[in-house]
Design a protein around this nucleic acid. Structure first.
Lengths: 229, 229
DNA sequence: AAAAGCGGTTACAGAAATGTGACACTTCAC
DNA sequence: GTGAAGTGTCACATTTCTGTAACCGCTTTT
């Protein structure tokens, strides 16, 4: 099973090497060289796994791990630490900061892939995605249900993902391109107008509960999910 | 949170050292020096975690791990491997045999405890032997019986485990992969569509009592057992 | 006012996911 | 052995979802 992996590594050569192996194994790779970029990327792309270098310019890996664990949405994302030497102190700190595993450089591609597989496998049963609620509209990823004012809304897969993305990224305008990247996946080739159609489907599905107005059109830009008028 | 830990280690000095640290941290420790004793103890005591030495007289650690993963009752118990050197081959094999983590000797007590904590934290909730009842459908693991509205339903082993899992994890959506991991065991290689077939068999078995329908299809995601519509 | 741009809406065919029945194979009790 | 029961796969049927195109009305430009 391919996964979206965020690779945080400042050394270009190493970054390239690791990324190559990950892609080779069928994973989709995002890259970051600094802590700042890494944090932004995580929140926007919500990867399945973060490969985090221990030594970084600016904030250290542990610091990043702490911040990720502090945020509601990024809390469940597994982290694998890349440590330079077998310094036990580092390992322990990494684990306590919330890393799910660590691996000591240098490592073989096989080992790295095995670790990734193991971490992803044991994360699956947890699936502690938290429910979101806005203005009486409630979406629960765990039960895969959407309810508003007593009514239970029936959504198709794409509509569900779309609404989920909207609710977890409310009050912000998203272009059609951004929505395609985030909800459909940034590798697919789909017409932008398709987004409109799904917006329409989602709106009419939400109509019975009266929550359709939460999805607003921003002419010339895109769409926005907002609790405000 | 104190836990029951089975320590499998043939070197008396090391065994003593580790056990001391575990007890110090408030854990309850069982010990075994050979593979044979280890397997017996696991099945009788059902510990929360197994600390498994890589090198053992007789069967190797990997072998034990495989056997534990093959048994119904011990399948869920997390395993942490203790490897002597940082031999990458070992790590990979250990992970592939079903170990949840490994740690390289020598290690600090702090590190070991951090690992144990991490592994226990993500452990899947265990199944109980208590009878479950939802909407008049009653499943008793002890008598191995399922009854609904006076009717007694006859289920095959897999159907029974499947229903049991559903009833103890109601309202949540489970992907086919998760169901395979939880009901079949995460070591087996079975087609995902097989789940569909068993869902169908379970549904038609429950039909006489009118309790099919509790098993709902969530298109694009998996299945859900729910008392709600 | 005409033209161009933009989004809403609908219809529909192809794609994808799931339901269903059949079958070969294994296991186990007798 | 032999037959019953259980299991995993497959092929096919059925249902549902999805992407596009086409058309419409409204708004902004020219």
């Amino acid at each position: 099973m391919p996964a979206n992996i965020l690779l945080v590594e400042d050394e270009p050569a190493i970054q390239e090497l690791i990324a190559f192996n990950l892609v080779q194994a069928g994973h989709h790779v995002l890259r970051a060289s600094t802590a700042e970029v890494a944090l932004t990327l995580v929140k926007n792309a919500l990867p399945d796994l973060v490969l985090l270098d221990w030594m970084l310019p600016g904030a250290s890996g542990v610091e990043i791990a702490r911040k990720l664990r502090a945020d509601e949405r990024t809390r469940q994302i597994p982290i694998i630490m890349l440590t330079a030497r077998s310094e036990e102190q580092d390992k322990v700190q990494g684990l306590e900061a919330g890393a799910d595993d660590y691996i000591t450089k240098p490592f073989s591609p096989r080992e790295l892939l095995a670790r990734i597989k193991a971490v992803l496998r044991r994360r699956a049963p947890q699936m502690t995605d938290d429910a979101v609620e806005v203005k009486g509209l409630r979406l629960d990823p765990v039960t895969h249900r959407v309810q508003g004012n007593g009514e239970t809304v029936d959504l198709g897969p794409t509509e569900f993902r779309l609404l989920h993305f909207f609710m977890t990224h409310a009050e912000r305008v998203h272009s059609r391109t951004q929505l395609l990247d985030q909800v459909w996946g940034d590798h697919v080739f789909v017409e932008e107008r398709t987004v409109d159609v799904h917006i329409r489907r989602l709106r009419s599905a939400l109509e019975p509960t009266g929550h359709d107005g939460l999805i607003q059109t921003v002419r010339g830009t895109g769409y926005r999910f907002s609790a405000q008028g």
